[in-house]
Amino acid sequence: MTKIATREAYGQALVTLGAENPDVVVLDADLAKSTKTLAFKKHFPHRFFDLGIAEANMIGTAAGLATAGKIPFCSTFAVFATGRAYDQIRQSVAYPNLHVIIAATHAGITVGEDGASHQSVEDLALMRAMPNMTVFVPADAVETAGAVRAAVACDGPVYIRLGRSGVPVLHGDDFELVPGKAVEMRRGLDATIIACGLMVAQALEAAEQLAAEGIDVGVLNVHTLKPLDVQAIVNAAQRTGAIVTAEEHSIIGGLGSAVAETLAEHYPVPMLRVGLRDVFGESGKPDELLRKYGLTAEDIANAVQSLI
């Protein structure tokens, strides 16, 4: 299966978008080679701004550009975008509801060898709690292109969470990402795995493994963490009676929390959260880290089996 990193897809999507929309500008903080915004810089050098290693200033500058009708995409690693510049996102972007798009790469532990200082495990919690913010977590290259396009159509601030490592392409080119509308990747009766980002592919693999053991599991892909598709989640709970969430993020504040909140209010069913259990990551190969921190298809399958 073809694997493409969502950051690669982001870089390409920006170039396409840049040709279509002259108001799109791109800002980076000395990581253009890694975040893949370099492609945009090559095509549209006068609409690209490298702010240097100064993330707070990058977000503030983007806010100023947005007040004048520009559509700024800001990129750096997720840990710096949401951590280093949190208050700038809050005060200068989200509170005034400015249309700034924060497309953060290298999210989660699959950053790999750089270790915990560069692995964001809480960025979704931070961005999800921010009023006015829309939050996309694309599962593959096609969803990334869709999220970039959808972000331009959104009002107000947008966070797009992207990864460093290659992930399987799950959708055909005809897939259309509709913000706030979860995608039923697979229908099942015994339980539903609700996943986002690279964990969608792991969830599909888990469903295959479980099917071989006669367990019929659905997979719901929540590419938009906010606004959350409450109806799809409630429907899944009603239909299958058991929910496992899977995310490359802390189980506190991200997808697992969002789903738990939704079920507790609307349709409580037994659920388990697969994710980082309130810990930081460490150095290692992405696959090794996913195994060590319990984020593989086997881990998801085990969670389903313990639940039903």
Binding site: V25, H46, R47, F49, A56, N57, I59, G60, T61, A62, A63, G64, L65, A66, T67, A68, G69, K70, P72, D87, Q88, R90, Q91, S92, Y95, P96
Partner: peptide, 24 residues
């Protein structure tokens, strides 16, 4: 022109406005 209150942020925003003038 800008929501402010958390100190230190206005000059960066002003930079963005000034850059937008140049772009346009």
């Amino acid at each position: 022109e800008m929501s402010t209150g958390s100190l230190g942020q206005g000059l960066a925003v002003a930079n963005g406005m000034a850059l937008a003038a140049r772009l346009d």
